[in-house]
Design a protein around this nucleic acid. Sequence first.
DNA 1: GAGTGGTCTAGACCACAAT
DNA 2: TTGTGGTCTAGACCACTCC
Lengths: 253, 253
Amino acid sequence: MVDRRSGVPAFRQVAADLRNKITTGRLSAGEQLPSERDLVDQYGVSRPTVRDAVNVLRSEGLVTSEHGRGVFVRPPANVQRLARSRLSRSAREENRGAFLADAAAHGFTPSTSVKVSFEAADDRVAGYLAIETGAEVTVRDRVLRADGLVVQLAVSRLRREFTRGTAIEQVDTGPGGTYARLEEAGHRLASFTEHVGARMPTPDEASLLQLAEGVPVVTVTRVAYREDGVPVETNDMVLAADRYQLSYEWAAD
Amino acid sequence: MVDRRSGVPAFRQVAADLRNKITTGRLSAGEQLPSERDLVDQYGVSRPTVRDAVNVLRSEGLVTSEHGRGVFVRPPANVQRLARSRLSRSAREENRGAFLADAAAHGFTPSTSVKVSFEAADDRVAGYLAIETGAEVTVRDRVLRADGLVVQLAVSRLRREFTRGTAIEQVDTGPGGTYARLEEAGHRLASFTEHVGARMPTPDEASLLQLAEGVPVVTVTRVAYREDGVPVETNDMVLAADRYQLSYEWAAD
DNA sequence: GAGTGGTCTAGACCACAAT
DNA sequence: TTGTGGTCTAGACCACTCC
Protein backbone atom coordinates (compact mmCIF):
# COMPACT_ATOMS: atom_id res chain seq x y z
CA MET A 1 0.00 0.00 0.00
CA VAL A 2 1.19 3.48 -0.80
CA ASP A 3 1.35 6.40 1.60
CA ARG A 4 -0.92 9.07 0.18
CA ARG A 5 0.21 11.77 2.58
CA SER A 6 3.93 11.48 1.95
CA GLY A 7 3.90 13.79 -1.02
CA VAL A 8 5.76 11.19 -3.06
CA PRO A 9 3.75 10.25 -6.17
CA ALA A 10 2.09 6.86 -5.90
CA PHE A 11 3.77 5.47 -9.02
CA ARG A 12 7.17 6.43 -7.65
CA GLN A 13 6.44 4.72 -4.36
CA VAL A 14 5.44 1.57 -6.20
CA ALA A 15 8.52 1.80 -8.42
CA ALA A 16 10.78 2.33 -5.41
CA ASP A 17 9.28 -0.64 -3.60
CA LEU A 18 9.68 -2.94 -6.58
CA ARG A 19 13.19 -1.62 -7.25
CA ASN A 20 14.07 -2.33 -3.66
CA LYS A 21 12.82 -5.90 -3.97
CA ILE A 22 14.95 -6.34 -7.07
CA THR A 23 18.19 -4.88 -5.76
CA THR A 24 17.93 -6.76 -2.47
CA GLY A 25 17.24 -10.00 -4.28
CA ARG A 26 13.71 -10.58 -2.99
CA LEU A 27 12.90 -10.59 -6.68
CA SER A 28 15.78 -12.37 -8.36
CA ALA A 29 17.11 -12.27 -11.90
CA GLY A 30 14.70 -13.69 -14.43
CA GLU A 31 11.87 -13.86 -11.93
CA GLN A 32 8.41 -12.67 -12.89
CA LEU A 33 6.86 -9.69 -11.15
CA PRO A 34 3.27 -9.93 -9.93
CA SER A 35 0.86 -9.16 -12.74
CA GLU A 36 -0.23 -5.55 -13.17
CA ARG A 37 -3.69 -6.45 -11.89
CA ASP A 38 -2.13 -8.05 -8.81
CA LEU A 39 -0.04 -4.96 -8.19
CA VAL A 40 -3.21 -2.87 -8.45
CA ASP A 41 -4.60 -4.86 -5.51
CA GLN A 42 -1.36 -4.97 -3.55
CA TYR A 43 -0.70 -1.25 -3.65
CA GLY A 44 -4.26 0.03 -3.88
CA VAL A 45 -3.70 2.13 -6.99
CA SER A 46 -5.17 2.09 -10.48
CA ARG A 47 -3.67 0.17 -13.36
CA PRO A 48 -2.32 3.21 -15.22
CA THR A 49 -0.48 4.11 -12.01
CA VAL A 50 0.97 0.61 -11.79
CA ARG A 51 2.01 0.85 -15.41
CA ASP A 52 3.73 4.18 -14.77
CA ALA A 53 5.69 2.48 -12.00
CA VAL A 54 6.72 -0.42 -14.22
CA ASN A 55 7.68 2.06 -16.95
CA VAL A 56 10.12 3.70 -14.56
CA LEU A 57 11.82 0.36 -13.95
CA ARG A 58 11.86 -0.42 -17.66
CA SER A 59 13.60 2.79 -18.56
CA GLU A 60 16.13 2.09 -15.83
CA GLY A 61 16.83 -1.21 -17.55
CA LEU A 62 15.80 -3.22 -14.48
CA VAL A 63 12.89 -5.14 -16.00
CA THR A 64 11.61 -6.16 -19.39
CA SER A 65 7.99 -6.85 -20.19
CA GLU A 66 6.82 -9.51 -22.57
CA HIS A 67 3.43 -9.11 -24.11
CA GLY A 68 1.06 -11.82 -22.96
CA ARG A 69 3.64 -13.33 -20.59
CA GLY A 70 4.55 -10.91 -17.86
CA VAL A 71 7.19 -8.55 -16.54
CA PHE A 72 10.55 -10.05 -15.63
CA VAL A 73 13.63 -8.96 -13.75
CA ARG A 74 16.41 -8.47 -16.27
CA PRO A 75 19.32 -10.79 -15.67
CA PRO A 76 22.66 -9.01 -15.27
CA ALA A 77 24.15 -8.19 -18.64
CA ASN A 78 26.60 -10.59 -20.14
CA VAL A 79 29.33 -8.17 -20.94
CA GLN A 80 32.02 -8.87 -23.44
CA ARG A 81 35.31 -7.02 -23.29
CA LEU A 82 36.84 -5.54 -26.39
CA ALA A 83 40.55 -4.80 -26.10
CA ARG A 84 40.91 -1.57 -28.05
CA SER A 85 44.43 -0.34 -27.62
CA ARG A 86 45.88 -3.50 -29.12
CA LEU A 87 45.01 -2.46 -32.64
CA SER A 88 48.65 -2.80 -33.62
CA ARG A 89 50.05 -3.26 -37.08
CA SER A 90 51.01 -6.88 -36.57
CA ALA A 91 47.52 -7.73 -35.35
CA ARG A 92 46.02 -5.93 -38.31
CA GLU A 93 48.16 -7.71 -40.81
CA GLU A 94 46.99 -11.10 -39.69
CA ASN A 95 43.36 -10.52 -40.49
CA ARG A 96 40.85 -8.16 -41.91
CA GLY A 97 40.43 -6.17 -38.74
CA ALA A 98 39.59 -6.40 -35.09
CA PHE A 99 36.11 -7.73 -35.70
CA LEU A 100 37.26 -10.84 -37.52
CA ALA A 101 39.90 -11.41 -34.86
CA ASP A 102 37.20 -11.34 -32.20
CA ALA A 103 35.15 -13.75 -34.25
CA ALA A 104 38.03 -16.18 -34.31
CA ALA A 105 38.71 -15.75 -30.61
CA HIS A 106 35.12 -16.14 -29.46
CA GLY A 107 33.93 -18.63 -31.98
CA PHE A 108 31.08 -16.78 -33.61
CA THR A 109 30.38 -16.52 -37.32
CA PRO A 110 30.94 -12.97 -38.50
CA SER A 111 29.21 -11.26 -41.37
CA THR A 112 28.98 -7.68 -42.51
CA SER A 113 27.00 -5.53 -44.89
CA VAL A 114 28.77 -2.58 -46.43
CA LYS A 115 27.54 0.45 -48.30
CA VAL A 116 30.05 2.76 -49.93
CA SER A 117 29.15 6.32 -50.76
CA PHE A 118 30.61 9.78 -51.04
CA GLU A 119 29.50 12.90 -49.29
CA ALA A 120 30.51 16.39 -48.27
CA ALA A 121 32.12 16.58 -44.86
CA ASP A 122 30.09 18.31 -42.17
CA ASP A 123 31.76 20.39 -39.48
CA ARG A 124 32.32 17.49 -37.14
CA VAL A 125 33.89 15.20 -39.72
CA ALA A 126 35.91 18.04 -41.19
CA GLY A 127 37.29 18.75 -37.75
CA TYR A 128 38.38 15.19 -37.20
CA LEU A 129 39.93 14.85 -40.64
CA ALA A 130 41.48 18.33 -40.59
CA ILE A 131 39.87 19.24 -43.89
CA GLU A 132 37.51 21.97 -44.94
CA THR A 133 33.80 21.64 -44.38
CA GLY A 134 32.24 20.48 -47.61
CA ALA A 135 35.29 18.60 -48.85
CA GLU A 136 34.50 15.22 -50.39
CA VAL A 137 34.85 12.17 -48.18
CA THR A 138 34.49 8.47 -48.88
CA VAL A 139 31.96 6.84 -46.56
CA ARG A 140 31.94 3.16 -45.67
CA ASP A 141 28.76 2.32 -43.77
CA ARG A 142 29.00 -1.09 -42.17
CA VAL A 143 26.67 -3.33 -40.19
CA LEU A 144 28.59 -6.00 -38.29
CA ARG A 145 26.86 -9.25 -37.33
CA ALA A 146 27.83 -12.15 -35.10
CA ASP A 147 25.93 -15.33 -35.89
CA GLY A 148 23.48 -13.22 -37.84
CA LEU A 149 22.78 -10.78 -34.99
CA VAL A 150 23.74 -7.16 -35.42
CA VAL A 151 26.36 -6.29 -32.82
CA GLN A 152 27.87 -3.09 -34.12
CA LEU A 153 27.29 -0.23 -36.50
CA ALA A 154 30.31 1.49 -37.96
CA VAL A 155 30.62 4.44 -40.32
CA SER A 156 34.10 5.07 -41.61
CA ARG A 157 35.00 8.31 -43.39
CA LEU A 158 38.18 9.10 -45.29
CA ARG A 159 39.38 11.99 -47.40
CA ARG A 160 38.39 11.07 -50.91
CA GLU A 161 41.85 11.93 -52.25
CA PHE A 162 43.34 9.13 -50.14
CA THR A 163 40.96 6.45 -51.39
CA ARG A 164 40.67 7.19 -55.10
CA GLY A 165 41.78 4.22 -57.13
CA THR A 166 42.04 1.92 -54.10
CA ALA A 167 39.85 -0.97 -53.00
CA ILE A 168 38.61 1.23 -50.15
CA GLU A 169 36.04 2.52 -52.61
CA GLN A 170 34.94 -1.05 -53.26
CA VAL A 171 32.57 -2.99 -51.04
CA ASP A 172 35.26 -5.60 -50.48
CA THR A 173 38.48 -3.96 -49.41
CA GLY A 174 40.42 -7.22 -49.49
CA PRO A 175 42.77 -8.78 -46.92
CA GLY A 176 43.74 -6.49 -44.07
CA GLY A 177 40.87 -4.13 -44.76
CA THR A 178 40.91 -0.39 -45.12
CA TYR A 179 44.06 0.12 -43.05
CA ALA A 180 46.08 -2.27 -45.18
CA ARG A 181 44.99 -0.45 -48.35
CA LEU A 182 45.87 2.89 -46.82
CA GLU A 183 49.36 1.73 -45.96
CA GLU A 184 49.84 0.29 -49.44
CA ALA A 185 48.95 3.71 -50.79
CA GLY A 186 51.76 5.19 -48.74
CA HIS A 187 49.79 6.39 -45.74
CA ARG A 188 51.68 4.62 -43.00
CA LEU A 189 49.59 4.70 -39.83
CA ALA A 190 51.28 5.95 -36.69
CA SER A 191 48.64 6.37 -34.00
CA PHE A 192 45.00 6.08 -33.10
CA THR A 193 42.72 8.12 -30.90
CA GLU A 194 39.34 6.96 -29.66
CA HIS A 195 36.68 9.21 -28.16
CA VAL A 196 34.19 7.22 -26.10
CA GLY A 197 30.75 8.38 -25.04
CA ALA A 198 27.25 7.08 -24.47
CA ARG A 199 23.67 8.11 -25.20
CA MET A 200 20.26 6.62 -25.65
CA PRO A 201 19.78 4.96 -29.03
CA THR A 202 17.72 6.34 -31.86
CA PRO A 203 14.72 4.13 -32.69
CA ASP A 204 16.62 2.85 -35.73
CA GLU A 205 19.60 1.84 -33.65
CA ALA A 206 17.38 0.27 -31.02
CA SER A 207 15.69 -1.99 -33.55
CA LEU A 208 18.87 -2.84 -35.46
CA LEU A 209 20.78 -3.71 -32.31
CA GLN A 210 17.67 -5.27 -30.74
CA LEU A 211 18.10 -3.21 -27.62
CA ALA A 212 15.81 -3.65 -24.66
CA GLU A 213 14.29 -0.56 -23.06
CA GLY A 214 16.67 1.32 -20.83
CA VAL A 215 19.82 0.14 -22.59
CA PRO A 216 22.11 2.92 -23.87
CA VAL A 217 24.59 2.70 -26.70
CA VAL A 218 28.31 3.27 -26.39
CA THR A 219 29.67 5.50 -29.11
CA VAL A 220 33.29 5.35 -30.22
CA THR A 221 34.86 7.74 -32.65
CA ARG A 222 38.25 6.51 -33.76
CA VAL A 223 40.69 8.66 -35.67
CA ALA A 224 43.71 7.12 -37.39
CA TYR A 225 46.76 9.33 -37.91
CA ARG A 226 49.64 9.12 -40.32
CA GLU A 227 53.23 9.46 -39.14
CA ASP A 228 53.22 13.15 -40.05
CA GLY A 229 50.16 13.66 -37.86
CA VAL A 230 47.68 13.97 -40.72
CA PRO A 231 44.39 12.24 -39.87
CA VAL A 232 43.39 9.77 -42.56
CA GLU A 233 40.27 8.09 -41.27
CA THR A 234 37.52 8.61 -38.73
CA ASN A 235 35.25 5.78 -37.73
CA ASP A 236 32.02 6.23 -35.79
CA MET A 237 30.96 3.06 -34.03
CA VAL A 238 27.83 2.27 -32.06
CA LEU A 239 27.57 -0.70 -29.70
CA ALA A 240 24.97 -2.04 -27.28
CA ALA A 241 26.07 -0.99 -23.80
CA ASP A 242 24.70 -4.13 -22.17
CA ARG A 243 26.85 -6.38 -24.33
CA TYR A 244 30.17 -4.58 -24.63
CA GLN A 245 32.81 -2.95 -22.53
CA LEU A 246 35.88 -1.34 -24.04
CA SER A 247 39.27 -1.93 -22.50
CA TYR A 248 42.26 0.35 -22.89
CA GLU A 249 45.68 -0.12 -21.39
CA TRP A 250 48.80 1.98 -21.30
CA ALA A 251 52.11 2.25 -19.51
CA ALA A 252 52.50 4.53 -16.52
CA ASP A 253 55.39 6.39 -18.09
CA MET B 1 -3.77 13.67 -37.04
CA VAL B 2 -2.89 10.05 -36.48
CA ASP B 3 -3.70 7.19 -38.79
CA ARG B 4 -5.90 4.83 -36.84
CA ARG B 5 -5.75 2.01 -39.37
CA SER B 6 -2.00 1.81 -39.68
CA GLY B 7 -1.59 -0.52 -36.74
CA VAL B 8 1.05 1.77 -35.29
CA PRO B 9 0.01 2.93 -31.81
CA ALA B 10 -1.19 6.51 -31.72
CA PHE B 11 1.37 7.62 -29.13
CA ARG B 12 4.18 6.24 -31.29
CA GLN B 13 2.89 8.09 -34.31
CA VAL B 14 2.80 11.31 -32.34
CA ALA B 15 6.28 10.62 -30.93
CA ALA B 16 7.64 9.84 -34.40
CA ASP B 17 6.14 13.02 -35.84
CA LEU B 18 7.57 15.19 -33.09
CA ARG B 19 10.93 13.41 -33.28
CA ASN B 20 10.97 14.05 -36.99
CA LYS B 21 10.33 17.75 -36.43
CA ILE B 22 13.20 17.84 -33.96
CA THR B 23 15.79 16.00 -36.02
CA THR B 24 14.98 17.95 -39.17
CA GLY B 25 15.19 21.22 -37.30
CA ARG B 26 11.57 22.28 -37.69
CA LEU B 27 11.71 22.35 -33.91
CA SER B 28 15.13 23.67 -33.03
CA ALA B 29 17.26 23.35 -29.93
CA GLY B 30 15.78 25.05 -26.90
CA GLU B 31 12.47 25.64 -28.62
CA GLN B 32 9.24 24.92 -26.82
CA LEU B 33 6.91 22.20 -28.06
CA PRO B 34 3.20 22.94 -28.37
CA SER B 35 1.46 22.46 -25.03
CA GLU B 36 0.05 19.03 -24.31
CA ARG B 37 -3.48 20.41 -24.71
CA ASP B 38 -2.52 21.82 -28.11
CA LEU B 39 -1.08 18.49 -29.17
CA VAL B 40 -4.35 16.85 -28.10
CA ASP B 41 -6.13 19.05 -30.63
CA GLN B 42 -3.49 18.75 -33.35
CA TYR B 43 -3.33 14.98 -33.33
CA GLY B 44 -6.86 14.18 -32.21
CA VAL B 45 -5.84 11.99 -29.29
CA SER B 46 -6.39 12.16 -25.56
CA ARG B 47 -3.97 13.81 -23.18
CA PRO B 48 -2.63 10.58 -21.67
CA THR B 49 -1.77 9.51 -25.20
CA VAL B 50 0.05 12.77 -25.84
CA ARG B 51 1.90 12.33 -22.57
CA ASP B 52 2.94 8.81 -23.58
CA ALA B 53 4.37 10.28 -26.76
CA VAL B 54 6.28 12.97 -24.91
CA ASN B 55 7.55 10.35 -22.46
CA VAL B 56 9.08 8.43 -25.35
CA LEU B 57 11.00 11.52 -26.41
CA ARG B 58 12.07 12.24 -22.85
CA SER B 59 13.53 8.78 -22.35
CA GLU B 60 15.37 9.20 -25.65
CA GLY B 61 16.91 12.33 -24.21
CA LEU B 62 15.43 14.52 -26.95
CA VAL B 63 13.28 16.79 -24.80
CA THR B 64 13.03 17.92 -21.20
CA SER B 65 9.86 19.06 -19.55
CA GLU B 66 9.69 21.83 -17.00
CA HIS B 67 6.74 21.85 -14.68
CA GLY B 68 4.58 24.90 -15.23
CA ARG B 69 6.65 26.09 -18.18
CA GLY B 70 6.54 23.60 -21.02
CA VAL B 71 8.40 20.92 -22.91
CA PHE B 72 11.62 21.96 -24.66
CA VAL B 73 13.95 20.49 -27.22
CA ARG B 74 17.17 19.60 -25.44
CA PRO B 75 20.12 21.52 -26.79
CA PRO B 76 22.99 19.33 -27.98
CA ALA B 77 25.12 18.29 -25.06
CA ASN B 78 28.17 20.33 -24.29
CA VAL B 79 30.66 17.52 -24.18
CA GLN B 80 33.99 17.83 -22.45
CA ARG B 81 36.84 15.56 -23.40
CA LEU B 82 38.91 13.83 -20.79
CA ALA B 83 42.27 12.59 -21.99
CA ARG B 84 42.68 9.31 -20.16
CA SER B 85 45.79 7.64 -21.45
CA ARG B 86 47.96 10.57 -20.44
CA LEU B 87 47.88 9.60 -16.79
CA SER B 88 51.65 9.41 -16.73
CA ARG B 89 53.96 9.65 -13.76
CA SER B 90 55.22 13.11 -14.57
CA ALA B 91 51.70 14.45 -14.91
CA ARG B 92 50.73 12.82 -11.65
CA GLU B 93 53.67 14.27 -9.79
CA GLU B 94 52.71 17.79 -10.67
CA ASN B 95 49.37 17.69 -8.97
CA ARG B 96 46.99 15.67 -6.87
CA GLY B 97 45.51 13.77 -9.77
CA ALA B 98 43.82 14.17 -13.10
CA PHE B 99 40.81 15.95 -11.65
CA LEU B 100 42.80 18.84 -10.25
CA ALA B 101 44.71 19.08 -13.52
CA ASP B 102 41.43 19.43 -15.38
CA ALA B 103 40.33 22.06 -12.93
CA ALA B 104 43.44 24.08 -13.65
CA ALA B 105 43.08 23.60 -17.40
CA HIS B 106 39.41 24.49 -17.62
CA GLY B 107 39.25 27.07 -14.89
CA PHE B 108 36.66 25.61 -12.57
CA THR B 109 36.89 25.39 -8.80
CA PRO B 110 37.28 21.77 -7.75
CA SER B 111 36.12 20.26 -4.49
CA THR B 112 35.73 16.73 -3.27
CA SER B 113 34.15 14.84 -0.41
CA VAL B 114 35.86 11.65 0.68
CA LYS B 115 34.77 8.78 2.87
CA VAL B 116 37.29 6.14 3.84
CA SER B 117 36.16 2.71 4.95
CA PHE B 118 37.18 -0.92 4.92
CA GLU B 119 35.23 -3.83 3.55
CA ALA B 120 35.49 -7.42 2.40
CA ALA B 121 36.13 -7.76 -1.32
CA ASP B 122 33.28 -9.17 -3.36
CA ASP B 123 33.91 -11.42 -6.34
CA ARG B 124 34.23 -8.60 -8.82
CA VAL B 125 36.70 -6.55 -6.78
CA ALA B 126 38.64 -9.67 -5.81
CA GLY B 127 38.98 -10.50 -9.48
CA TYR B 128 40.35 -7.10 -10.37
CA LEU B 129 42.77 -7.00 -7.44
CA ALA B 130 43.77 -10.67 -7.80
CA ILE B 131 42.96 -11.40 -4.17
CA GLU B 132 40.60 -13.83 -2.51
CA THR B 133 36.94 -12.99 -2.11
CA GLY B 134 36.42 -11.67 1.40
CA ALA B 135 39.92 -10.24 1.77
CA GLU B 136 40.02 -6.82 3.39
CA VAL B 137 40.19 -3.80 1.11
CA THR B 138 40.51 -0.10 1.80
CA VAL B 139 37.71 1.89 0.18
CA ARG B 140 37.94 5.56 -0.75
CA ASP B 141 34.52 6.82 -1.79
CA ARG B 142 34.77 10.22 -3.47
CA VAL B 143 32.34 12.78 -4.83
CA LEU B 144 34.03 15.20 -7.21
CA ARG B 145 32.58 18.65 -7.76
CA ALA B 146 33.30 21.42 -10.22
CA ASP B 147 32.11 24.82 -9.04
CA GLY B 148 29.96 23.02 -6.47
CA LEU B 149 28.25 20.76 -8.99
CA VAL B 150 28.81 17.02 -8.75
CA VAL B 151 30.55 15.86 -11.92
CA GLN B 152 31.91 12.46 -10.99
CA LEU B 153 31.58 9.67 -8.47
CA ALA B 154 34.63 7.54 -7.80
CA VAL B 155 35.14 4.55 -5.55
CA SER B 156 38.72 3.43 -5.19
CA ARG B 157 39.61 0.08 -3.64
CA LEU B 158 43.04 -1.17 -2.60
CA ARG B 159 44.34 -4.21 -0.79
CA ARG B 160 44.43 -3.22 2.85
CA GLU B 161 47.97 -4.57 3.26
CA PHE B 162 49.21 -1.96 0.79
CA THR B 163 47.60 1.00 2.55
CA ARG B 164 48.16 0.25 6.22
CA GLY B 165 50.14 3.01 7.85
CA THR B 166 49.92 5.31 4.81
CA ALA B 167 47.93 8.48 4.23
CA ILE B 168 45.75 6.50 1.85
CA GLU B 169 43.73 5.53 4.88
CA GLN B 170 43.30 9.20 5.75
CA VAL B 171 40.73 11.47 4.16
CA ASP B 172 43.53 13.71 2.88
CA THR B 173 46.12 11.67 1.06
CA GLY B 174 48.42 14.64 0.57
CA PRO B 175 50.20 15.91 -2.54
CA GLY B 176 50.10 13.55 -5.50
CA GLY B 177 47.23 11.59 -4.04
CA THR B 178 46.86 7.85 -3.64
CA TYR B 179 49.28 6.97 -6.43
CA ALA B 180 52.07 9.06 -4.93
CA ARG B 181 51.61 7.35 -1.55
CA LEU B 182 51.62 3.94 -3.19
CA GLU B 183 54.89 4.64 -4.94
CA GLU B 184 56.44 5.95 -1.73
CA ALA B 185 55.47 2.67 -0.13
CA GLY B 186 57.45 0.84 -2.79
CA HIS B 187 54.62 -0.04 -5.17
CA ARG B 188 55.96 1.53 -8.33
CA LEU B 189 53.15 1.76 -10.86
CA ALA B 190 53.81 0.36 -14.30
CA SER B 191 50.54 0.32 -16.22
CA PHE B 192 46.86 1.12 -16.17
CA THR B 193 43.85 -0.56 -17.66
CA GLU B 194 40.45 1.04 -18.03
CA HIS B 195 37.21 -0.80 -18.77
CA VAL B 196 34.58 1.54 -20.16
CA GLY B 197 30.85 0.86 -20.30
CA ALA B 198 27.52 2.64 -19.98
CA ARG B 199 24.16 2.07 -18.34
CA MET B 200 21.18 4.01 -17.07
CA PRO B 201 21.81 5.66 -13.72
CA THR B 202 20.35 4.52 -10.44
CA PRO B 203 17.98 7.08 -8.92
CA ASP B 204 20.72 8.05 -6.47
CA GLU B 205 23.20 8.69 -9.25
CA ALA B 206 20.61 10.58 -11.27
CA SER B 207 19.95 13.01 -8.44
CA LEU B 208 23.60 13.39 -7.41
CA LEU B 209 24.75 14.06 -10.97
CA GLN B 210 21.58 16.04 -11.73
CA LEU B 211 20.92 13.99 -14.82
CA ALA B 212 18.02 14.76 -17.11
CA GLU B 213 15.76 11.94 -18.21
CA GLY B 214 17.24 9.79 -20.94
CA VAL B 215 20.85 10.51 -20.04
CA PRO B 216 23.00 7.44 -19.33
CA VAL B 217 26.12 7.30 -17.22
CA VAL B 218 29.52 6.23 -18.46
CA THR B 219 31.24 3.80 -16.13
CA VAL B 220 34.99 3.46 -15.98
CA THR B 221 36.81 0.83 -13.99
CA ARG B 222 40.49 1.57 -13.81
CA VAL B 223 43.03 -0.92 -12.54
CA ALA B 224 46.58 0.18 -11.67
CA TYR B 225 49.34 -2.42 -11.90
CA ARG B 226 52.75 -2.63 -10.30
CA GLU B 227 55.85 -3.42 -12.35
CA ASP B 228 55.57 -7.09 -11.42
CA GLY B 229 52.01 -7.16 -12.75
CA VAL B 230 50.33 -7.17 -9.35
CA PRO B 231 47.19 -5.01 -9.36
CA VAL B 232 47.25 -2.48 -6.55
CA GLU B 233 44.15 -0.38 -7.04
CA THR B 234 40.80 -0.49 -8.78
CA ASN B 235 38.74 2.64 -9.23
CA ASP B 236 35.07 2.65 -10.27
CA MET B 237 34.03 5.97 -11.75
CA VAL B 238 30.63 7.20 -12.87
CA LEU B 239 30.18 10.21 -15.15
CA ALA B 240 27.26 11.93 -16.85
CA ALA B 241 27.30 10.78 -20.46
CA ASP B 242 26.01 14.11 -21.77
CA ARG B 243 28.90 16.01 -20.25
CA TYR B 244 31.92 13.79 -20.78
CA GLN B 245 33.72 11.88 -23.47
CA LEU B 246 36.81 9.83 -22.74
CA SER B 247 39.75 9.98 -25.10
CA TYR B 248 42.42 7.34 -25.45
CA GLU B 249 45.35 7.34 -27.78
CA TRP B 250 48.04 4.86 -28.62
CA ALA B 251 50.72 4.18 -31.19
CA ALA B 252 50.02 1.94 -34.15
CA ASP B 253 52.91 -0.35 -33.35
C1' DG C 1 -5.60 34.27 -12.96
C1' DA C 2 -4.32 31.75 -16.88
C1' DG C 3 -1.51 28.37 -18.78
C1' DT C 4 1.66 24.77 -18.17
C1' DG C 5 3.05 19.97 -16.90
C1' DG C 6 2.23 16.15 -13.04
C1' DT C 7 -0.72 12.78 -11.04
C1' DC C 8 -4.53 9.67 -10.84
C1' DT C 9 -8.87 7.21 -11.70
C1' DA C 10 -12.26 3.70 -13.66
C1' DG C 11 -13.07 1.86 -16.99
C1' DA C 12 -12.80 -0.32 -22.11
C1' DC C 13 -10.96 -3.07 -25.74
C1' DC C 14 -7.04 -5.23 -28.17
C1' DA C 15 -3.01 -8.45 -28.92
C1' DC C 16 -0.34 -12.08 -27.44
C1' DA C 17 0.94 -16.46 -24.81
C1' DA C 18 -0.07 -20.52 -22.63
C1' DT C 19 -3.20 -24.26 -21.55
C1' DT D 1 -10.36 -20.01 -22.53
C1' DT D 2 -7.80 -17.51 -19.31
C1' DG D 3 -4.36 -14.42 -17.99
C1' DT D 4 -0.96 -11.35 -19.43
C1' DG D 5 0.69 -6.80 -21.07
C1' DG D 6 -0.51 -2.82 -24.69
C1' DT D 7 -3.40 0.95 -25.96
C1' DC D 8 -6.71 4.56 -25.26
C1' DT D 9 -10.31 7.57 -23.41
C1' DA D 10 -12.63 11.48 -20.72
C1' DG D 11 -12.28 13.36 -17.33
C1' DA D 12 -10.50 15.37 -12.50
C1' DC D 13 -7.48 17.80 -9.48
C1' DC D 14 -2.86 19.36 -8.12
C1' DA D 15 1.62 22.04 -8.47
C1' DC D 16 4.31 25.18 -10.67
C1' DT D 17 5.40 29.46 -13.56
C1' DC D 18 4.51 33.79 -15.17
C1' DC D 19 2.01 37.85 -15.72
